[in-house]
Design a binder for these strands. Structure first.
Lengths: 133, 133
DNA sequence: CGGCATCCGGACTGATACTG
DNA sequence: CAGTATCAGTCCGGATGCCG
């Protein structure tokens, strides 16, 4: 390959470098960080819950999106689904140990963003003021 | 209000609860965790860079999306843009102190996901095997 | 080099309706 | 309660072309 210093190796030597296209880890990262994925993991970090309880925690999510999100997270091994075929049916969702680790880091990020929102809002105002013609 | 334990207060008492619809922090969180936002912050965490250098680091991003992403992050005060009106033009992007904090947590998440991909892949195989009719 | 404006197909989203 | 199915609307995102 080019020896002109183009090497994009980054610090990674990982076989699962998210920065590369077509790497399976990028898909998982998108499940985790996606619009509803992050909020769903955050909601479950609090405690396990049933479907409609989760819907209430994640304000604004539709049935379809929540269902879809939970399936993706379950498939990735981050969420455990426990279904009782009783009447009425009861399905409990909870984080797996791996899911808990991921959610923990995610919560760290979420809380940082929440806590620094005043700075963000201020930055936005400055930006908007500067970019008005 | 209801004293039946419905209080959805969560651990948050924050005025910027991402779990609530219409909260500005949710928008910022989406910029940060979005498909290209997370990878862009990750790329900049390594070091500041020029536009096309960033394009190379974030494999697969289009010019348009990178530009759009950088604007959003700049507006949120996470990225600093330094433009020299020379010829040829030169524009350097770098993280702000706040951006660096956010990117740091993000990298923690990214590295966790990358490192645990074997488990994820395994979980997927199990899921797919169990859900084939 | 570092962008922005436009176009356009397809992916994604969200009501609604229906099932077990 | 816990979903799936369907369908219409939105918007994402890439390609192209032009400008400073």
């Amino acid at each position: 390959m080019g020896e002109t210093g183009t090497a994009p190796v980054r610090e990674s030597g990982s076989p699962f470098d998210v920065f590369s296209r077509q790497c399976p880890s990028r898909v998982t990262l998108e499940h985790v960080t996606g619009r509803w994925g992050s909020l769903t993991l955050g909601a479950l970090y609090e405690s396990g819950a049933r479907f409609n309880e989760l819907r209430r925690r994640v304000d604004g999510v539709s049935e379809k999106m929540l269902s879809q999100t939970l399936h993706a997270l379950e498939r990735d091994g981050l969420v455990h689904r426990d279904a009782r075929l009783t009447n009425p049916p009861r399905v409990d969702y909870a984080l797996t140990p791996l899911g808990r680790e991921v959610a923990s880091r995610l919560m760290g990020l979420i809380q940082l963003v929440e806590g620094r929102m005043p700075e963000v809002v201020e930055a936005r105002d400055r930006y908007d003021a500067a970019h008005r013609t």
